[in-house]
Amino acid sequence: MKKWWWKILCIVLLVYTLIAGLLWNNVPRLPQLNETIRNLYFHVCMWFAMMILFIISAVQAVKYLRTNDLHHDTRSREYATIGIIFGILGYATGAIWMSYTWVDPNRPAYESFSQIAKEPKLIGAAIALLIYFAYLVLRDSISDIDKRARIGAVYNIFAFAFLFPAIWIIPRLLPSLHPGGEGPGGVRTDNPALDFKALAPQMRLVFYPAIIGWTLLGVWITTLKIRLKALKEKTYLQ
């Protein structure tokens, strides 16, 4: 365990997130959201971790194309994998959260679900995740090592470029129930998570450490996978 200080930081921040996020009585009393506002420390952080891991993955892909060093290729692939896992977790937690806050109890369930299914944020995130699934399928289906690395890196950069319209631009231009973008009352909150006007200031004390903690956890798991893969390759060569 070399350079272990950030792992301890990760554990401390996450334990703090769990305890303060669940117990600290400083969340605003909002109608409809009620106590579920605490999901901000978990659901939103999943997406943050996913985005940061995807950014690292794209940077590693660019590094591979510049240097032709295969280490960068495996790093790029593992960061993308863990990013996808965090994306799926974000989707699943969002599904749970929305079924308690967006679903209209006065209407039949399928009607409100058919409305929720049209949410631009859900569709955008689904498209982005599917494109990254395709990255894994494409990269792992090529058996030639150099070709695999090169095509994978190029496709990775394309997939990262597609995150911009799919997650960061289009959903924010369309009306949506989800915070961020044009709200139902025509109120603009431009960024779903980092909008300083919309987020209660006392919640940031837990929210920012939570983002850092969850992201570090993702990076930790990824480094484990990268090291394991390097070991495997070494044993194949011997």
Binding site: M1, K2, K7, L14, V15, L18, W220, I221
Partner: peptide, 28 residues
């Protein structure tokens, strides 16, 4: 009673983290 829930969640989380640390050591 909320403290009980939080204690359970933190225990599970620390268990998973301990597993992760063990994995890290093994790979090292």
């Amino acid at each position: 009673k909320i403290y009980v829930v939080v204690a359970v969640i933190v225990t599970i989380f620390i268990g998973i983290i301990l597993y992760l640390i063990r994995l890290d050591r093994k790979i090292s």
